[in-house]
Amino acid sequence: MEENKFLRNFIEVFDEVPTEAITMNTVLRAIEGWSSLVGLSIIAMADQEYGVEIDDVDLRGIKTVGELFDLIQKKTNVK
């Protein structure tokens, strides 16, 4: 899994968050515009881009963008 591609996919989830504002260390819930719809969109992104299923409990356990990357990567490897 490639980090830059992942960050691009991640940014697409948001309406208007600037690309520079997101790094692997960004805290998810601190991103402006974070909402339950964003949560749903991340789940859909993981499904469509990486073919992995995550749910909102998984998501709740995650703090940073990097942790989300790790989780998706872990799930892709399991498959």
Binding site: I43, A44, D47, E53, D55, D56, V57
Partner: peptide, 8 residues
């Protein structure tokens, strides 16, 4: 509903 937990 992939993605929706029992809690939700």
């Amino acid at each position: 509903n992939t993605g929706i937990s029992q809690e939700r």
